[in-house]
């Protein structure tokens, strides 16, 4: 039971990051390999604010806003020049890898390579459930996650912005003809993703009790796995996928000796391969028919 809770806690963080990935994919059909590093970078900003005496919730909010701005600006300055959603995916992957390197190293240069300490956002309390201790932190995380899923579900399905985001993904030209401001919509999409990323980052940091430049790399892989599992265009799928990935890897690492802690990533990787081969659209994703 303890492992289940640990797995859920880890999964919740992957889920939030996966949500960020899904939002970008929903909005632009692209993957941002710098997503994790963006999250790490904004977490450092949050930590700096925290250190300056700002309460954690304000620091997190501010970091999310800053993340939003960075995400939107990156889209406007870099991705648009490569053609945005209709650009060459190869070029965009390479550019986001470039961003990854800059942010990763940059954070190390600006804030030093020693992990900075971060307190638990929801305090250190524990609650007994079914004979196992569960940290209040984890319950808090799951709560935030639930709010995010519902929020994004509503955003995509019920608001004008969500409609615009979906329209742009489906067909940029038609969307533009129908009066959707494609550029603005996509900037908002990338901004939103970076904003949620900031949230994922702060939670990861408070989970690890620290923030360091490499903290999001493994999380990013898991998040990709989560998004793949859940379906790249489904926010709910991302969250379910994140929780499943968190659970499965925690349980496999704990109970299958051959894997052990050294091979933490293996279960996730295998899961991704299987999903891609058997059901490429993921559990909750919608299948697409390729058109030339």
């Amino acid at each position: 039971m303890q492992r289940v809770f640990d797995g859920l806690a880890a999964g919740a963080v992957y889920a939030i990051l996966a949500l960020a990935i899904v939002v970008i994919f929903r909005a632009s059909g692209l993957l941002n390999f710098a997503q994790g590093e963006l999250a790490m970078f904004t977490t450092f900003i949050a930590w700096t604010l925290l250190d300056a005496g700002i309460p954690w919730w304000a620091a997190t909010l501010l970091a999310m806003v800053i993340g939003f701005v960075i995400g939107a600006v990156l889209y406007r300055l870099l991705i648009v020049r490569l053609g945005g959603p209709s650009g060459n995916p190869l070029a965009i992957v390479i550019v986001t890898i470039g961003l990854f390197l800059i942010l990763n190293d940059g954070a190390g240069i600006i804030w030093g390579s020693n992990p900075a300490k971060v307190p638990r956002v929801f305090g250190d309390g524990r609650v007994e459930i079914l004979g196992a201790g569960i940290a209040v932190q984890v319950i808090g995380l799951l709560g935030v996650l639930a709010v995010l899923v519902i929020g994004f579900g509503l955003l995509f399905q019920r608001t004008k912005l969500g409609l615009a985001l979906r329209a742009v993904t489906a067909n940029q030209e038609s969307a533009a003809l129908a009066g959707v401001k494609v550029m603005t919509t996509l900037m908002i999409g990338w901004g939103l993703a970076a904003g949620i990323g900031a949230l994922a980052g702060t939670f990861t940091a408070s989970q690890n009790l620290g923030v360091d430049a490499n903290m999001m790399q493994v999380a990013l892989i898991y998040a990709f796995a989560a998004a793949t599992l859940g379906g790249f265009d489904s926010p709910l799928g991302a969250v379910v996928g994140g929780l499943i990935i968190g659970l499965v890897s925690e349980l496999v690492v704990g109970y299958v000796d051959i894997i052990g802690p050294d091979l933490r990533l293996l279960p996730g990787f295998v899961l991704v391969l299987v999903v891609l081969l058997v059901r490429p659209q993921g559990l909750f994703g919608s299948a697409r028919v390729a058109r030339a």
Partner: peptide, 23 residues
């Protein structure tokens, strides 16, 4: 698997491979 998955997903799988190898 790359036959079933397009560019971006392939980047993903190979990224996983790169991370997995040292482990």
């Amino acid at each position: 698997p790359a036959l079933r998955i397009t560019g971006v997903y392939q980047a993903l799988v190979t990224l996983g491979l790169a991370t997995l190898f040292p482990q």
